[in-house]
Computed example of a mutant assay.
Amino acid sequence: MIPLATVQRLAARPHAPLHHLDASETAVLRVDAARQVTEADRQWIGFAATLSPDDLLKSLRGWWRCDAPSVAAAGALPVTVSGYVVAVLTGLETWEKNERGRHAFPQARLAGYVTDLATPAKTLTATDAADRELADLLLGTRLASHSGGAIAYVSTRTTD
Protein backbone atom coordinates (compact mmCIF):
# COMPACT_ATOMS: atom_id res chain seq x y z
CA MET A 1 0.00 0.00 0.00
CA ILE A 2 1.22 3.48 -0.84
CA PRO A 3 0.32 6.18 1.71
CA LEU A 4 -2.28 8.69 0.51
CA ALA A 5 0.08 11.63 1.11
CA THR A 6 2.67 10.04 -1.21
CA VAL A 7 0.07 9.46 -3.93
CA GLN A 8 -1.05 13.07 -3.62
CA ARG A 9 2.55 14.35 -3.92
CA LEU A 10 3.08 12.22 -7.02
CA ALA A 11 -0.17 13.47 -8.58
CA ALA A 12 0.91 17.07 -7.96
CA ARG A 13 4.33 16.54 -9.59
CA PRO A 14 4.97 19.05 -12.41
CA HIS A 15 4.98 18.00 -16.05
CA ALA A 16 8.35 17.58 -17.73
CA PRO A 17 9.59 20.92 -19.15
CA LEU A 18 10.12 19.48 -22.62
CA HIS A 19 10.25 22.93 -24.23
CA HIS A 20 13.91 23.07 -23.05
CA LEU A 21 14.83 20.37 -25.57
CA ASP A 22 16.19 21.37 -28.99
CA ALA A 23 13.70 19.34 -31.04
CA SER A 24 9.99 19.42 -31.82
CA GLU A 25 9.55 15.97 -30.28
CA THR A 26 11.43 13.68 -27.95
CA ALA A 27 11.55 9.95 -27.69
CA VAL A 28 10.68 8.46 -24.31
CA LEU A 29 11.94 5.08 -23.12
CA ARG A 30 9.20 3.40 -21.11
CA VAL A 31 10.50 0.66 -18.80
CA ASP A 32 9.28 -1.56 -16.00
CA ALA A 33 10.84 -2.31 -12.64
CA ALA A 34 14.18 -4.05 -12.99
CA ARG A 35 14.25 -7.81 -13.30
CA GLN A 36 17.20 -10.15 -13.49
CA VAL A 37 18.25 -11.51 -16.87
CA THR A 38 20.93 -13.90 -18.03
CA GLU A 39 22.70 -11.97 -20.75
CA ALA A 40 26.40 -11.73 -21.46
CA ASP A 41 26.62 -7.96 -20.99
CA ARG A 42 24.12 -7.29 -18.17
CA GLN A 43 22.35 -8.85 -15.20
CA TRP A 44 19.30 -6.56 -15.11
CA ILE A 45 16.78 -5.03 -17.47
CA GLY A 46 14.56 -2.12 -16.43
CA PHE A 47 14.80 0.46 -13.65
CA ALA A 48 15.72 0.09 -9.99
CA ALA A 49 17.05 2.93 -7.87
CA THR A 50 19.17 0.42 -5.97
CA LEU A 51 21.32 -0.49 -9.00
CA SER A 52 24.77 1.06 -9.29
CA PRO A 53 25.05 3.71 -12.02
CA ASP A 54 27.00 1.25 -14.23
CA ASP A 55 24.42 -1.52 -13.79
CA LEU A 56 21.57 0.95 -14.28
CA LEU A 57 23.04 2.18 -17.56
CA LYS A 58 23.44 -1.40 -18.77
CA SER A 59 19.88 -2.25 -17.70
CA LEU A 60 18.47 0.69 -19.67
CA ARG A 61 20.40 0.12 -22.88
CA GLY A 62 18.69 -2.08 -25.38
CA TRP A 63 17.76 -2.77 -28.97
CA TRP A 64 14.53 -0.94 -29.86
CA ARG A 65 12.25 -0.49 -32.81
CA CYS A 66 12.55 3.25 -33.26
CA ASP A 67 13.48 6.05 -35.59
CA ALA A 68 17.09 6.49 -34.47
CA PRO A 69 17.55 10.03 -35.85
CA SER A 70 14.41 11.13 -33.99
CA VAL A 71 15.68 9.57 -30.76
CA ALA A 72 19.00 11.37 -31.15
CA ALA A 73 17.51 14.73 -32.20
CA ALA A 74 16.42 15.89 -28.75
CA GLY A 75 19.83 15.16 -27.22
CA ALA A 76 18.33 13.24 -24.32
CA LEU A 77 16.18 10.19 -23.79
CA PRO A 78 13.94 10.46 -20.72
CA VAL A 79 13.29 7.08 -19.12
CA THR A 80 9.89 6.67 -17.48
CA VAL A 81 8.24 4.22 -15.14
CA SER A 82 4.45 4.65 -14.97
CA GLY A 83 4.67 8.13 -16.47
CA TYR A 84 7.41 9.57 -14.22
CA VAL A 85 10.93 10.39 -15.39
CA VAL A 86 13.24 8.15 -13.37
CA ALA A 87 16.41 8.43 -15.49
CA VAL A 88 17.85 10.41 -18.38
CA LEU A 89 20.19 9.06 -21.07
CA THR A 90 22.38 11.27 -23.24
CA GLY A 91 25.15 10.53 -25.76
CA LEU A 92 22.72 9.35 -28.42
CA GLU A 93 24.55 10.79 -31.42
CA THR A 94 25.60 7.41 -32.81
CA TRP A 95 23.57 4.25 -33.23
CA GLU A 96 23.71 0.77 -34.67
CA LYS A 97 21.04 -1.25 -36.45
CA ASN A 98 20.76 -5.03 -36.17
CA GLU A 99 19.38 -7.59 -38.63
CA ARG A 100 15.94 -7.40 -36.94
CA GLY A 101 15.61 -3.67 -37.67
CA ARG A 102 16.21 -2.61 -34.07
CA HIS A 103 18.53 0.19 -32.99
CA ALA A 104 20.97 0.54 -30.11
CA PHE A 105 22.87 3.57 -28.86
CA PRO A 106 26.24 2.17 -27.68
CA GLN A 107 27.60 5.57 -26.56
CA ALA A 108 24.56 6.36 -24.38
CA ARG A 109 25.46 7.81 -21.00
CA LEU A 110 23.46 7.95 -17.79
CA ALA A 111 23.01 11.67 -17.06
CA GLY A 112 21.08 11.07 -13.85
CA TYR A 113 18.42 9.04 -12.07
CA VAL A 114 16.11 9.23 -9.08
CA THR A 115 16.77 7.25 -5.93
CA ASP A 116 13.40 8.19 -4.43
CA LEU A 117 10.48 9.22 -6.62
CA ALA A 118 8.17 10.35 -3.82
CA THR A 119 10.62 12.91 -2.40
CA PRO A 120 12.23 13.09 -5.19
CA ALA A 121 15.92 12.49 -4.60
CA LYS A 122 18.07 12.93 -7.71
CA THR A 123 21.54 11.61 -8.47
CA LEU A 124 23.23 13.49 -11.29
CA THR A 125 25.95 11.39 -12.90
CA ALA A 126 26.76 13.38 -16.06
CA THR A 127 30.15 15.05 -16.28
CA ASP A 128 28.95 17.46 -18.96
CA ALA A 129 27.26 20.56 -17.47
CA ALA A 130 24.51 20.70 -20.12
CA ASP A 131 23.66 17.02 -19.58
CA ARG A 132 23.54 17.55 -15.80
CA GLU A 133 21.25 20.55 -16.19
CA LEU A 134 18.93 18.67 -18.52
CA ALA A 135 18.77 15.66 -16.19
CA ASP A 136 18.06 17.94 -13.24
CA LEU A 137 15.16 19.56 -15.14
CA LEU A 138 13.55 16.28 -16.18
CA LEU A 139 14.09 13.88 -13.28
CA GLY A 140 11.05 13.25 -11.10
CA THR A 141 8.63 15.05 -13.42
CA ARG A 142 5.49 13.63 -15.01
CA LEU A 143 5.77 12.61 -18.64
CA ALA A 144 2.81 10.82 -20.17
CA SER A 145 3.47 8.85 -23.34
CA HIS A 146 1.52 6.31 -25.35
CA SER A 147 3.00 3.56 -27.48
CA GLY A 148 2.73 -0.13 -28.14
CA GLY A 149 6.46 -0.52 -27.57
CA ALA A 150 9.30 0.60 -25.38
CA ILE A 151 9.88 3.84 -27.30
CA ALA A 152 7.20 6.52 -27.53
CA TYR A 153 7.37 9.99 -29.07
CA VAL A 154 6.08 13.12 -27.35
CA SER A 155 5.79 16.68 -28.63
CA THR A 156 8.09 19.13 -26.85
CA ARG A 157 5.85 22.06 -27.72
CA THR A 158 3.03 21.26 -25.29
CA THR A 159 2.74 21.48 -21.51
CA ASP A 160 2.15 17.72 -21.11
Rank of each mutant, 00 (worst) to 15 (best):
V88E: 06
Y84H: 13
C66L: 05
L56C: 13
Q36N: 03
A121P: 00
Q8D: 12
D116I: 02
V114Q: 04
T38F: 14
T156L: 06
C66W: 00
P106R: 06
T156A: 07
W64N: 10
A135V: 12
L110N: 03
I45F: 07
L10T: 00
V79M: 05
G112L: 03
T38Q: 15
E133I: 02
Y113G: 06
G62K: 09
G101L: 06
T26S: 12
S155G: 06
T80E: 05
A48S: 14
D116N: 15
A73N: 00
R132D: 02
G83A: 05
W44D: 15
A118N: 11
S24H: 15
A74K: 06
L143G: 07
D32C: 05
S155I: 04
W63F: 13
A40S: 14
L77W: 02
A5L: 11
A73P: 01
S145R: 10
L117P: 07
A11N: 05
L89F: 08
A130V: 10
R109A: 14
F47G: 01
S70C: 02
S70V: 07
A118I: 10
A33P: 04
L18I: 05
A121L: 12
L4R: 15
T50N: 08
A111Y: 13
G91D: 06
W44E: 13
Q8C: 08
P14R: 13
S82N: 11
R157L: 15
A111W: 15
F47H: 03
G101P: 13
W44P: 11
V88T: 04
H19K: 14
I45Y: 05
G140N: 02
V71F: 14
A126R: 10
R109C: 12
G75H: 08
A74M: 08
Q36S: 10
A73Y: 00
R35N: 03
V85D: 02
L143D: 09
R132N: 02
